[in-house]
Design a protein around this nucleic acid. Structure first.
Length: 885
DNA sequence: GAGTTCACG
DNA sequence: ACGTACGTGAACTCA
């Protein structure tokens, strides 16, 4: 029968090895280095899989001196201090081990090695099979027929196993003799002297022959004169060295095998720690999942609403209760061709499901009632789904997902499973588990009945439990007003923008596409000729080889993976070869063709001939909205060639015209307001050209002699200020030296003293509270501010400076959107908001309503909030988006 | 799925 | 000494 296995790990030795074997830049976003822990846990994982041990323990050294220090003062003297990057990982590693419920052992006066030796011998006597894991060859003396010593090799990828035979095979001496070898040769890292002049080779040779140091010293015959001298002179030292190198195997320590039993990890703690350490892959490796709580409620009965009587009684119950949880599942195929599969409701702790559209319509009054509160998740989708049934969802709406976003907008996603876990520590199947992902992803109509019923009811329960917690937390964090006054009313505005869409001229798009195709074909041929071979121009790797290896152009910059070939690099090589300008043009054209012509063409709605982008309210860390499928917020404008794409975007019909209204310098105005800077405020109050004013101050010239070059430099400085300036960043942007850039910045901050004070105080504030806020109290946490890593911390500082500016601008335009939308609706106008691009709104205006709409826009946008400086907008109309300039 | 590039504010 | 401008999304290559 096989003996039970016990794994004994030398904690200090192993973490040292993993620390030096893995890249030191591995760190989480708080700046805590994680490489050594990562390696350690990986090895742990490997051991569990390969050996499946019955018992496990990790031994650590203590900082206190051991008996070896008492015997030999110089022991381990001159050893370098553990680097800070490793030291900070030690306590965290111990936390990880605790989370895994792995036993730890350390003892004053002894080293980890001694504890390991003692344990191994103890276990051998109990007929267990000890497996020692270490990064240190010293432990080889413990190898035996029963005890195996595993030593990390080549980084951490392999562990080499040594028993008695393997030590003998490899070194020609037995494990016990290995101690004598070390006694002779000494050990630099432990400062064990040994016999000077004897190294590993000689030591092994001598011990092979004489078996031990004592034997050797008693029989020096047959050795060279020099060797004899060395040995006699250092005899005492050799004996001492041997004693120091000997691992103690009878440390007086009480061992209880029971304590060393391998236990199940505390999954909750492991998950928490791995999340903190950002060990994504390891989470999967260990298959640590939250145990599903056997929630009595999770199998609650679903009341099917399948008759007019039932829907009427449900209706009454809702009116009486004044609130309910709502979750609509639709096939979600297409915004204007969407089919509701079923609607779940939770009223007074009872779950209902409606599948019949006709019966759902019976609930139109309660769904539209402003007096009845609805609790939901992704309510924008529900609103859109209901729109097809001519139902306008209204009332106090609590979107749990939106609330979770406001509470912490930096999260990567807000899946209900994560929110439920985070706020209540409870489990619900995640969407991925339910529907799959990627190609095989199902939609709700393909889900089998049973799963849909259980997921729908569990979701309603989760939402009803979460609502109170989320609202409470919003109130605590001063976010509730932002939610009620801005974010909630914005849901319907975004939904409406998506629903209405932006009309496109298909013919025009095709025309542009054809022209691009022709030019790309020609350019491709020329580039192949230039290169004297055909290659994939889209491949930066292949392009790099052609430009820098074959054609011998000087590489300007490198990336992680090779040569950089971005626009900036190509610009620097512009005159060096004919191929360069062609590549630059090729890149531009291909971008236009693939992203804007083909990309847009692919998302034109067949039914409406329009593009219905999705506007996401819960993505950005600053509070901006984002646009996807397609992104309508990055349609080209800077270069004429790309700008032509905007000719494709047209009004719905000849009754309409497009009107574009954009805030002028909104971010700098926001900066003027929040920094309270006298000069900046004055400049805006007097309607000055702000870049020119900045130029005049930075370069100390009168306003009317500012050159256009100075103005454009000042513009870059203004941008830099908004982004959280650094001399390096500005120097890169302006192609000037860092020193010069620093001069500009210093000059700026001298002249705009309020800005300087703001930048300093906001970083301080961020550090103190852990977050920064916008005008409307929108919050963003910045853990990077406390990072030890310089780059990360600097990034945190720039974020702290930029977020209140960008975020406040986002607040302002969101308010404007809600107000404009409401005015258009209240006045029963046909004109409607169809797009927002961060500081501009695009309205499709009915031609009869132009003046009225212009007034509404001007009023609502300029008075969205009241700042210390005026808000100013520019408006342009046109028959296509291109013309609104 | 990561890395690179490039379109916008 | 450190080495990046802030915020996004999409297309493409390559492992």
């Amino acid at each position: 029968m096989l003996n039970k296995k016990i794994v004994i790990i030398d904690g200090n030795s192993l973490i040292n090895r993993t620390f030096y074997a893995l890249p030191i830049h591995m760190a989480n976003k708080e700046g805590l280095h994680t490489n050594a822990i990562y390696g350690f846990v990986n090895i742990l994982n490997k051991i569990y899989k390969e050996y499946d041990p019955e018992y496990i323990t990790v031994a650590f050294d203590m900082k206190k001196p051991t008996f070896r220090h008492n015997e030999f003062k110089e022991y381990k003297a001159g050893r370098k201090k553990m680097p800070e990057e490793l030291a900070e990982q030690m306590p965290v590693l111990k936390e990880v081990l605790d989370a895994f419920n792995i036993h730890r052992v350390e003892l004053e006066g002894f080293e980890a090695d001694d504890l390991i030796g003692t344990l191994a011998k103890f276990c051998e006597n109990k007929d267990l099979s000890p497996i020692i894991i270490t990064g240190d060859k010293d432990a080889l003396q413990l190898a035996s027929d029963k005890t195996k010593v595993l030593i990390t090799k080549k980084g951490i990828s392999t562990l080499e196993q040594y028993g008695y035979d393997e030590v003998l095979d490899t070194y020609g001496v037995t494990p016990t003799e290995f101690i004598d070898v070390k006694g002779l040769m000494g050990d630099k890292s432990d400062n064990i002297p040994g016999v000077p002049g004897i190294g590993e080779k000689t030591a092994i040779k001598l011990i092979k022959e004489h078996k031990s140091i004592e034997n050797l010293l008693g029989n020096l015959e047959g050795l060279t004169k020099k060797m004899k001298e060395k040995l006699t002179e250092n005899a005492e030292q050799a004996i001492l060295s041997k004693r120091l190198a000997t691992i103690i195997v009878d440390v007086p320590v009480a061992i209880s095998l029971e304590e060393l039993k391998r236990e199940k990890p505390n999954n909750e703690k492991v998950i928490e720690l791995f999340n903190k350490l950002e060990f994504k892959k390891l989470l999967k490796d260990f298959d640590v999942k939250k145990e599903r709580k056997t929630d009595v409620e999770s199998n609650r009965e679903v009341n099917m609403i399948d008759s007019i009587e039932k829907v009427k009684s449900l209706n009454e119950k809702i009116i009486k209760n004044e609130e309910f949880v709502l979750k609509i599942f639709s096939d979600h195929n297409n915004i204007r061709d969407e089919k509701i599969i079923c609607t779940f409701m939770l009223v007074e702790n009872e779950i209902y499901c409606i599948k019949d559209d006709g019966l759902l319509l019976e609930l139109k009054p309660v769904l539209e009632s402003v007096n009845i509160k609805k609790i939901g998740y992704e309510l924008k989708q529900d609103m859109t789904s209901l729109k097809e049934y001519d139902i306008k969802l209204d009332g106090i709406l609590i979107d749990v997902k939106l609330g979770a976003y406001l509470i912490d907008p930096s999260k990567k996603d807000y899946h209900i499973s994560n929110i439920y876990d985070e706020f209540l520590g409870e489990y619900i199947e995640n969407e991925e588990e339910l529907l799959g992902k990627g190609k095989g992803k199902l939609n709700y109509s393909q889900l089998d009945e049973e799963k849909l019923m259980s997921y729908g009811s569990n979701l309603c329960i989760a939402l009803s439990k979460l609502e109170g917690v989320i609202v409470e937390r919003m109130k605590e964090d001063d976010l509730y007003e932002l939610y009620m006054d801005v974010e909630l009313p914005l849901i319907k505005v975004l939904g409406s923008m998506e629903y209405i869409g932006f009309k496109v001229d298909r013919e025009k798009l095709k025309e542009i596409g054809n022209e691009l195709d022709e030019r790309i074909t020609n350019l491709t041929a020329q580039i192949y000729a230039d290169a004297d071979e055909e290659f994939n121009i889209n491949s930066t790797k292949q392009l790099g080889v052609i430009l820098f290896d074959k054609l011998g152009l000087p590489p300007v910059k490198k990336t992680k993976t090779g040569y950089s070939t971005n626009a900036e690099v190509l610009e620097k090589l512009y005159d060096k070869h004919d191929i360069i300008p062609r590549i630059i043009e090729y890149r531009q054209l291909v971008k236009l063709k693939s992203t804007y012509v083909d990309g847009l063409e692919a998302v034109i709605n067949e039914k409406t001939d329009k593009i219905h982008s999705s506007f996401n309210q819960m993505v950005t860390a600053t509070g901006r909205i984002s646009s996807t499928e397609p992104n309508l917020q990055n349609i080209p404008i800077k270069l004429e060639m790309g700008r032509n794409i905007r000719k494709v975007f047209v009004p719905t019909s000849d009754e309409y015209t497009l009107l574009d209204a954009d805030y002028s310098q909104i971010e700098l105005r926001v900066l003027a307001h929040i920094s309270d800077d006298e000069n900046l405020i004055e400049a805006f109050r007097e309607g000055q050209d702000i870049h020119k004013t900045t130029a005049s101050k930075v370069f100390e010239v009168p306003m009317d002699s500012v050159t256009s070059i100075q103005r454009s430099k000042a513009k870059a400085v203004n941008f830099g200020i908004v982004y959280g300036i650094s001399d390096y960043g500005l120097s890169e942007n302006l192609h000037i030296t860092k020193k010069e850039a620093k001069k500009y910045i210093d000059e700026y901050l001298n002249k705009y003293h309020g800005v300087k004070e703001y930048m300093e105080s906001i970083v301080k504030e961020g550090k103190e509270y852990g977050y920064v806020t916008t005008l409307l109290n929108r919050r963003r946490y910045i853990p990077e501010l406390k990072a030890k890593n310089f780059n990360l911390r600097s990034f945190g500082e720039r974020t702290a400076m930029n977020t209140p500016i960008q975020g406040t601008a986002a607040d302002i335009i969101k308010i404007a959107m809600v107000k404009v939308y409401d005015r258009l609706e209240k006045n029963n106008l046909k004109s409607r908001l169809i797009l927002q691009v961060h500081d501009e709104l695009i309205i499709e205006v009915h031609k009869d309503e132009m003046d009225m709409v212009k007034n509404i826009l001007k009023e609502e946008m300029e008075n969205a909030v009241s700042l210390q400086v005026p808000l100013d907008i520019d408006m342009n109309e046109g028959g296509s988006w291109y013309e609104t300039k």
